[in-house]
Each structure stands twice: as structure tokens, then as C-alpha cells.
Amino acid sequence: MSMSTDRMAALSEKAHEAQEKVQHAISEDRKQLSDSVTKAKQDSIQRADKLQREVAAKKAEASASLADVGTKWQEHVQSVKSHIEERKAELDMKRADRLADDAESYALDAISFASAAIEEAEYATLDAVLARSDADAKHTG
């Protein structure tokens, strides 16, 4: 199995784990759910920081568009998180409802981005497999 297919398998597993965590969270009490949200936020920040470091480290190798996507995604994540944090400070019912709507919208945006990333990863992986097949054929042909 190539490194590309290994990473696709790991991505699939990560998506499955996230789905299970969300399903489990539905049955948690308020404190457990709040703790889960806090942990997920911390994990997300750590992953975002790691992604930012990796993008910076590979920027010289990466295409300009990939670096731009990473930067725009980081800006989007930070903007949404800042917006959500501002909203959390206000506790009245209308604002709490809007916060929930924003959080749900952000979740849908993140899922859409992940879906697009999976599709791009699938394309890149299949293209890599094809390129390797072509290279192997030239060696034997």
C-alpha cells in the first residue's frame, strides 16, 4: 500500500471517529457535553496550529494555491472561533439561539470543507497511483 492510500485510510478512520464522538455527545449531560466541546476545541486549535506549521514548512515546495487554501482556511477558522467566543459571552435566549445557529453553520461549513478535502485527496491519490503505474510501465517497457 502506498503512502497516499495509507493517508486516505487514516482520513477515513478520523472521519468515522468524529462521527462516533458526535453521536455519543447527543446522550451526554450538559457538563459532559461542555467538556467534550472544550476538548474538541483544544484539539482543533492544536491541529490548526500543526497544519499552519506544516504549511509554513512546506510552503517553498507547495503550490501557491495550496498555501493560499491553507491560509484562507486558518483565517476562516480564526474568524469563526472569534465570532463564536464573542457570542458565548452573551447569555439571553435570542443570542443563545443565534449562537447555536452559528455553531451549526460552522459545523456544516467544516463538514463541507472536509468533504471537498476528501474529494481532492481522492483525486490526488488516484492521480499518484496512475503516475506510479505509468512510471513502472516505462521501467518495464
Rank of each mutant, 00 (worst) to 15 (best):
R95H: 03
K21C: 07
S65Y: 08
Q32K: 10
T5Q: 08
T71G: 05
S44Y: 10
D29V: 02
A117G: 09
S82T: 15
K58E: 10
E20Y: 00
D97P: 01
R95P: 00
E20S: 05
V129S: 06
E104A: 12
D92E: 09
H139F: 10
M1S: 05
K81M: 14
E85S: 09
A128C: 08
S4K: 06
Q42E: 11
T38S: 02
R132E: 14
E13R: 12
K94M: 09
A116K: 08
S133E: 14
I84L: 15
V55F: 02
T71N: 12
S44K: 03
L33R: 07
L66W: 00
K39Y: 05
A57N: 10
E90R: 07
E85A: 13
S65W: 06
D127M: 05
S36C: 05
K72E: 06
S133I: 14
Y106H: 11
D92H: 13
S34N: 06
K50D: 07
A110I: 08
D35V: 06
H24V: 06
M93L: 11
A137E: 11
K31E: 12
L126N: 09
R53L: 09
E75M: 09
H139S: 10
S105T: 05
D6E: 09
Q74W: 14
S82H: 15
D35C: 01
S36Q: 04
E13S: 10
D97C: 06
E20N: 02
S112N: 14
E17P: 04
L130E: 01
E61R: 11
L108Q: 15
S105M: 13
H83P: 00
S2W: 01
D136E: 15
Y123M: 05
M8N: 00
E90W: 02
T71L: 15
E75V: 10
Q46R: 10
F113M: 11
L11D: 01
A110E: 15
S79H: 10
S115P: 00
V69P: 01
A128G: 08
A15Y: 00
A107I: 01
T5K: 08
A116N: 14
V129T: 03
S4V: 03
S133D: 12
S44H: 11
A131V: 04
S105Q: 12
S112Q: 15
A57F: 04
A60V: 05
E90S: 02
A18K: 00
M8S: 01
L130N: 01
E119L: 04
A15P: 00
K21W: 03
A56E: 13
H139A: 11
R98A: 10
E122S: 13
T71F: 14
A117T: 04
S44F: 14
A110Y: 07
F113P: 01
L99K: 07
A62T: 06
G70T: 03
H24T: 09
S27D: 06
A128T: 05
K81Q: 13
V37F: 11
